[in-house]
């Protein structure tokens, strides 16, 4: 089991015969209360690794393209993991550099896409991940069109960072969600986009729905789905466009395109308390030119009353539900 602190191409990890585990994904469902923290996301997994609750054979820390909290907490956590690798995305989008990083990761994991023995397994893994992502994109499109439940869709999409350790089984789970969407009655309310890091609250999408807000776009899970490839070179080309690792102007380009395509009427910008992404808030407000609500989260659990109040007020301002004015 290879723990990943942020997005690391799962295609390559599966191809190398490992199972990735996004060590963030258990946190919203927990009541983690890390002792010493800036960001509760990174501090929670650090504590869980040091305390032995998360047992990993290897840890891949995203050291370039994620935050310094993750880098610092990753180095502390690494003391309780046998092997650690530091992975860097290119800020300038250099696909050659990205390919070098993928080769280094391949070397760390032992085997990758090369070699006779590994070839069949690697090709099968690549195809399974690609097939699951195709299903994920279908589910995502249904949700954006109001034909799939935003909450359960988000829960599935956020797991595309590791495909829950088994791409074929995970693909089946997504397929069942697509099937279940036939019975979905549809959602009402203004379509909103959720941008920034994922909320640390386990019921955030439900809280949005209760406030009359229909989430039609989840920025980071969309990145998990959007990126992929069938060999090292195409993976490098694709993952070098991971917007969270690139300059904010690059990220804005994708956001503008997706928000316009989905006819979004408002934006919820989620950031962790003390997160550097909060510093981008003014720029995002200026450039995206849509009503924006900024929500700061701290510790995992249910969405707190103050945050629900903001969501409800935002819904009212956008003209949602009974409280519309």
């Amino acid at each position: 089991m290879a723990g990943i602190t942020a997005l690391v191409p799962p295609e390559l990890i599966y191809a190398a015969g490992w199972r990735p585990l996004d060590i963030n994904n258990w946190i919203p469902g927990s009541d983690a209360r890390p002792r010493s923290k800036l960001c509760a996301w990174t501090a929670s997994w650090r504590e869980a690794i040091l305390g032995g609750e998360l047992k990993l054979d290897a840890l891949v820390v995203v050291a370039g393209g994620d935050c310094h909290n993750a880098l610092a907490d990753g180095q502390v956590a690494a003391r309780n993991v046998g092997r650690t690798h530091y992975f860097f995305y290119p800020f300038d989008g250099d696909a050659g550099y990205m390919e070098g990083q993928l080769r280094a990761l391949e070397g760390f994991l032992g085997e990758g896409l090369r070699g006779e023995r590994a070839h069949d397994r690697a090709m099968r893994a690549l195809e399974e991940v690609a097939a699951a992502k195709r299903l994920g994109l279908r589910l995502e499109a249904l949700r954006s069109a109001g034909r799939a439940d935003p909450g359960s869709t988000f829960d599935a999409l956020i797991s595309f960072s590791d495909l829950e350790g088994d791409p074929a089984r995970f693909g089946g789970k997504v397929e069942r969600l697509i099937d279940a969407s036939r019975d979905f009655r549809g959602t009402e309310g203004p379509g909103v986009a959720l941008i920034g890091v994922p909320p640390i609250y386990r019921d955030f999408h439900r809280a949005c729905a209760e406030a009359g807000l229909r989430v039609v776009f989840d920025e980071l899970p969309y990145e998990f789905l959007r990126l992929g490839g069938h060999d090292l070179r195409s993976l490098a080309r694709s993952y070098s466009t991971y917007t969270f690792a690139r300059p904010v102007e690059f990220r804005l380009g994708l956001l503008k395109r997706e928000l316009s395509r989905r006819k979004v009427r408002g934006i919820i910008h989620y950031a962790q308390f003390t997160c550097h992404h909060l510093l981008e808030d003014g720029l995002l407000r200026e450039e995206l030119d849509l009503p924006m609500l900024t929500v700061q989260g701290d510790l995992p659990g249910r969405t707190p009353a103050q945050v629900r109040l903001r969501l409800e007020a935002f819904g009212e301002l956008l003209g949602a539900g009974k409280g519309a004015i």
Binding site: G266, F273, R285, D289, L290, P291, M292, Q296, Q306, L317
Partner: peptide
């Protein structure tokens, strides 16, 4: 217990309740 700022020009809210 809190301060709420609403910009009516673009319907954005900011709150200080931390």
């Amino acid at each position: 217990q809190d301060t709420k700022v609403t910009d009516l020009r673009n319907l954005t809210l900011q709150m200080n309740d931390r």
